[in-house]
Simulated scan of single mutants.
Amino acid sequence: MDEWEVAGFLDRLKHRLTFASLYCDKKDRTAFTQLFKELFDTIHLVTGEQLKIHPFYPDGNCRVVIMDGEVPQAQAFGDFLSEYNNPEISNIYTRNHIDELGPHIPQPVISRLRSIMGLQTQVEIDEWHQFCTEQTEPAIANWYAHKLANPWILPSINKFLSRITPGDRDITPNHSNYVETAHAGRNAETSVGVGLLTAILQAKERDNIKARELAQILHEGVMGNRWNGSAEREKLSSQCKTWKMRSATIRNDQLTNYETLKAERDSGVAENKASLARQKELEFQIKALQADIALDKHRTDLPAQVLSLRRDIMEEKALRSEWGL
């Protein structure tokens, strides 16, 4: 049994709210279609009014519906909209899965695929399609084929292709974090794997607690966390991204320094081996000179040569000591 959250953010009260929890044991197109019907019917039953989506009702306050990029879910919403009103209006805003192609895909290729979200002319769109058709990597070919097989995906991530009005799109988040965090929060408070009735009763109790909190805020005019609005969250998100970029820069510098030091160490190891080889040769020459001295003690030049070779050995040892080897 899976639970589906319908959530949003009430900026006036600085709270994320779960408006509805739906339970279903299937994830196909038919099941999702029924979920959407049940949701809108329940809203009408509870409030006495139909939930109006702005593209279909000029006075509607629901501008955009954000959901996961599951194909059955999106198709089901399209089926629901065909009964709700005009089926030709695009009203799905979803995420893509470029990051799931794999680490073996070059970053320039990933960046080019991701650029679809910012293209603003038909010429740019056509060039992007041409780029995709020229790719031979199976993962990219499958990713692109998936987008062609589901023509609602690209309009949902590209403003130029979308039929959502620019004003509505500009005020719509480009993520589904509200519902994702609502789902995670619900799981943390009520656990997972519980029976259906238990899950419903736990959700009811949780919603009652939230309702009392909001009523207290409205009555007393005091919020537990008044710096929790969209603007504040965007600021914190921007600061977090800046910090991550700074950390990444520092790490890249450290990696560069590490590679430099590693190269120097490798060079030092090689030089150390060469120095030991030279010292061994010098010691061999000293032994040979000492043998000559033993045979002819009247040779006054040989001790001087031995002394010179010993100095060379000391220099080799001093060189190796600089590397600590």
Rank of each mutant, 00 (worst) to 15 (best):
V6D: 03
P303W: 07
S321T: 08
R95I: 14
A31D: 01
P106G: 01
L161P: 04
L39Y: 01
Q122G: 11
L51A: 09
P106Q: 02
G224H: 05
E83L: 07
W143N: 01
G193W: 06
W323S: 06
D301H: 11
F80R: 00
D170Q: 14
A277L: 07
V65Q: 00
L276E: 08
P87H: 01
F77R: 00
E283C: 05
G185K: 02
K14S: 10
R169H: 11
D296A: 06
D79Y: 00
D207N: 13
G118P: 06
P151V: 00
Y23M: 02
A145C: 11
R320G: 03
K262Q: 14
P103C: 11
P106R: 01
C24K: 01
P138C: 03
E49S: 09
I53M: 02
T42Q: 07
I313D: 01
A199K: 04
E234V: 08
A20E: 02
R114V: 11
R169D: 10
I116E: 05
S321E: 13
H298Y: 13
D168T: 10
F19M: 08
Q120G: 08
R233T: 10
Q130R: 15
N85I: 05
I200G: 04
I110H: 09
G324R: 00
L17A: 05
S176N: 13
A288Y: 09
S321L: 08
H97Q: 14
H219E: 15
L236C: 11
H298N: 14
E88S: 14
E232N: 12
K235Y: 12
A7F: 03
D59I: 03
T181G: 09
E322H: 13
C240E: 12
C240A: 14
Q130K: 15
M314A: 14
E124N: 03
K297D: 12
R320I: 04
R112W: 09
Y23Q: 02
F56T: 07
K159C: 13
G229R: 01
T190P: 05
V194S: 10
Q34C: 05
R299C: 08
I105T: 02
T94C: 02
L255G: 06
S156M: 06
L255E: 13
A270I: 03
E259C: 09
N61H: 12
D253K: 15
K273M: 08
E264R: 14
Q135K: 03
I209A: 12
P55S: 02
R233A: 11
I286P: 02
P166Q: 08
K210F: 09
E315S: 11
Q73L: 07
I313S: 04
E83Q: 10
P108V: 04
V306S: 03
Y93Q: 14
L289D: 07
D296F: 07
V6I: 13
F36D: 01
S275M: 06
L17C: 09
Y93G: 10
F56Y: 15
K26S: 06
F9P: 05
L236W: 14
